[in-house]
């Protein structure tokens, strides 16, 4: 990682940044996967699980890169990154971690995904609203990240952008269909937008990692993409005859490992097999 050392970004920051993108993708991928076999109609069941697999594929690429960054760290620094016992045990044996260890052996507080993505599916409207916020964010985020000086991140961004463009089309169209549909679908869609709105702000709240990464030309300047995001979301909501919720206090904490109660249940299901039968393959 020559470019990184030149730009003097510590591996820990780059790792934090990479992991949060991976965690966003894994957790939403899992949530969308929960629709498998439960979709309102066969065709949409397949559409959503296709999207889930797009997110999972991106998570894998990013976890592989994160594992690479982690394994390059000196031993004493490695101990500071995660407090999850299973990872600490691995580190103390001197073993390298891989993508699966990062996905299956970290506890909730070591996950950095935004709170929005762990929120439950509830119904089709909630699923669409959550997707609309995240897909819109992703679209502008990955457009910027594809210009990153970090080649690994730029490559993931460029590949993801094609997928995300389709995701955004899907969620925008569904928001309009439900919002501008029947009285019931309109009411449900508006409720979902209102309820999830307070989780959307975290995506644009930069922390220290964002600022350092952005300054070094490696990460995305969130203040730059926020107006683009707002304009697009407002355009979709207004076409959907929905009301954009007013500026309000925004929930946050996910980026720093403080999660809602929902993440624990997601991880319990996601990690059970590897925790109960370590190293199991099938």
């Amino acid at each position: 990682m020559d470019t990184n050392s030149k730009l003097q970004i510590p591996n820990s920051k780059l790792l934090d940044y990479t992991l949060r993108l991976a965690d966003d993708a894994l957790i939403l991928g899992h949530r969308l996967g929960e629709w498998c076999g439960h979709g309102p109609i066969l065709e949409q069941d397949i559409a959503l699980t296709n999207t889930a697999l797009d997110h999972l594929g991106r998570a894998r690429s990013l976890y592989q890169y994160a594992a690479e960054l982690f394994n390059q760290m000196p031993a004493d620094e490695k101990k500071q990154v995660f407090t999850s016992v299973a990872i600490q045990n691995l580190v103390s044996t001197g073993a390298n971690v891989d993508e699966d260890d990062l996905a299956y052996l970290r506890d909730g507080w070591d996950f950095r995904n935004a709170l929005l993505l762990e929120q439950p599916n509830i119904d089709w409207a909630y699923t669409v609203a959550r997707a609309l916020f995240y897909d819109t964010f992703n679209y502008f985020f990955f457009t910027e990240l594809s210009k990153s000086k970090n080649e690994s991140l730029a490559a993931v961004a460029e590949k993801s952008l094609k997928e995300v463009t389709y995701h955004l089309r899907w969620s925008s169209e569904w928001a309009v269909r439900l919002g501008d549909g029947t009285d019931e679908s309109h009411a449900r869609m508006q409720k979902a937008v209102n309820e999830l709105w307070m989780y959307s702000g975290e995506l644009f709240t930069p922390n220290e990692t964002d600022e350092e990464m952005s300054r070094a030309g490696l990460g995305v300047d969130l203040t730059k993409i926020k107006p683009l995001y707002m304009a697009r979301v407002q355009e979709v909501l207004s076409e959907a005859t929905l009301t954009t919720p007013p500026d309000t206090w925004m929930q946050q904490g996910g980026r720093n490992g403080r999660h809602s109660e929902h993440l624990g249940y997601v991880l319990a299901e996601l990690q059970f097999m590897q925790r109960a039968y370590p190293g199991m393959e099938w």
Partner: peptide, 20 residues
């Protein structure tokens, strides 16, 4: 064949069902 509410959705459903 597949079900869809309109032509646009039909094309998108076809993309997901038949071209993945």
């Amino acid at each position: 064949s597949l079900h869809a509410a309109d032509a646009q959705m039909a094309v998108e459903n076809a993309r997901d069902v038949y071209t993945r």
